[in-house]
Structures are given as structure tokens and as C-alpha cells.
Design a protein around this nucleic acid. Structure first.
Lengths: 124, 124
DNA sequence: CTCATTACTTACATTTTTGTTAGTACCATA
DNA sequence: TATGGTACTAACAAAAATGTAAGTAATGAG
């Protein structure tokens, strides 16, 4: 009786959505941090602390969680170097590299339309 | 004293993220339903009930909320016809149409990689 | 011995997102 | 008068996402 519902609508919808190629992709890459992390890795591997410093507002917990999920989804590769202090590097997999044009396009779109909005805001 | 914090970190991060073109775009188009709705409108305007029926798991509330947000973000245009019963149609704006190649690419990516994963799952 | 560094983990709290249920106004039809 | 369709809205509840604060192990520097 600790589980409320075995299959909440929320989870059912999650499954349902994964039956669609598009929303499957969104579920891999959506949320507040994932694309931001991925695009930081575009130019090559970075270690955990470098990622953390490069995304100033992210917490260690969030970075860990997102990286873990993306690792298990096959988007990033994690390499541990047996050194002290520890060194762990993250890099894009081939699968994730295929997304580079997507986030570039999205980013361009964002640049075009964010610009407009800010002008309006300034004018108001 | 009803507000807990004037500026929760959560909201602050939302703002922060909107300073990046990429995550600004994600914030426009992310979440469980938005892209799914947009791509339903790719071939032309649909009325509310058509959208609802075409996305079988969405609730009226969610559809309303998402459409409203996208309308105020300039992604969909809402047209009300003064008929009884009421008829309201939604269509993509020019801004949203610029995103068509993005969701096509994402969808293609999803198709390629979802396929792989399912094979693995079946094998396990 | 103490402190610092790195890459985390854990328990918990808060915020945001999503879903449930019921209700609205309008008119047509039976 | 009752029912049905359309496009919603409102109050509430549940679930998911995100954030906070503290702690861990290993080891080298001082």
C-alpha cells in the first residue's frame, strides 16, 4: 500500500509519448539542463568540475543526475581516470553528436526570436 | 508573508536559462505536449476538438494550457468563429513554421535511436 | 593533524508540471 | 424539458523536477 497507483496517468502518458519518435527525442533531451550540458561538450571532453563551473547556476546534484541519465541514454560517455584527486571526463557519444545540428538550429531560432521579444520589452 | 521567497532559485534559474538562445528555445517548445501539438498543426489549422481527438491522451485542461502559452509566445494563432456550437481554430504562426525542420530532424533522430533501444529491450 | 580538492551521494524541502473532476454558456434537437 | 456538442474554466490533488544542505573517501600540502 505504499504505492499510490501502479500506473499513474502521468506514467502512462510518459510511455505513450515515447511511442512517438519526436517526443521520444524530447524526453531524451528535454528539461532545464540537458541540452545546455550537451552543448558545453560540443568541442570535446570536459571534467565534472569544468562543466559545473561553465554552467554557473547548476548544482552538483543536478549535474550528476543529468549526466547519469544521459550516460544511461547513450548520450554521454564517462571516463574515470585513476588519479587522486579523482578525474572524471564526459564527452558526447556519436548518438549525441548527431544532435549538434538540431541544437544549433534551435539556438539560431532562439537568437532570432528572443531578440525581437527583448526589443519589445525595452520599448514597453 | 504568504510568499515563501520572492525569488526562488527555481525561478532565477528559469531566467538565467532564458539568457541562452538555446534554452530559451527549449523553454518555448519543451514539456510533454507542445511539440506534439505543433506538429499536428503542420498541415494546417485544426479546431480544438480535432486536436484533442488527434492526441488521444491529452486532457482538455492540458491542451488549453499549452495552446494558451503557445499563443502568448507567438507560436500559434487562435481564430474564433462566431458560430453555435463555437468553433475555434489553431494554426502555426510564421515563427512556429520556422521550427518545422527542427522537429523533423529531432523526429528522425528519435526514429533512428528509438529503434535501436527497443531491439535491446526485446533481447534482454 | 588539519585543510583543501574532486566527484560524487543522501535526506529532505520546495516548486513546477500534470492530471482529475466538476462546472460554465450557448444553442439545437428530440 | 432533457440531452448533447463545443470550447473552455476553476478548484483541487498527485507526481515529477529541481534545489538545499550536509556528508563521503582518497590523498597531498602545509
Amino acid at each position: 500500500m505504499s504505492k499510490r497507483k501502479e500506473t499513474s496517468s502521468n506514467s502512462i502518458n510518459k510511455e505513450y509519448i515515447i511511442e512517438c519518435d519526436l517526443t521520444y527525442a524530447i524526453s531524451m533531451v528535454g528539461g532545464r539542463w540537458k541540452l545546455l550540458i550537451l552543448c558545453r561538450l560540443e568541442d570535446g571532453a570536459l571534467r565534472f568540475s569544468e562543466l559545473r563551473r561553465s554552467i554557473s547556476n547548476i548544482t552538483e546534484r543536478m549535474l550528476t543526475l543529468q549526466l547519469k541519465e544521459m550516460e544511461s541514454d547513450g548520450l554521454v560517455r564517462r571516463t574515470v581516470y585513476a588519479e587522486v584527486p579523482p578525474r572524471v571526463e564526459y564527452e558526447l557519444t556519436h548518438t549525441a553528436k548527431e544532435l549538434i545540428p538540431v541544437w544549433k538550429q534551435l539556438s539560431d531560432w532562439g537568437a532570432r526570436h528572443r531578440g525581437c521579444q527583448m526589443t519589445v520589452v525595452k520599448a514597453g
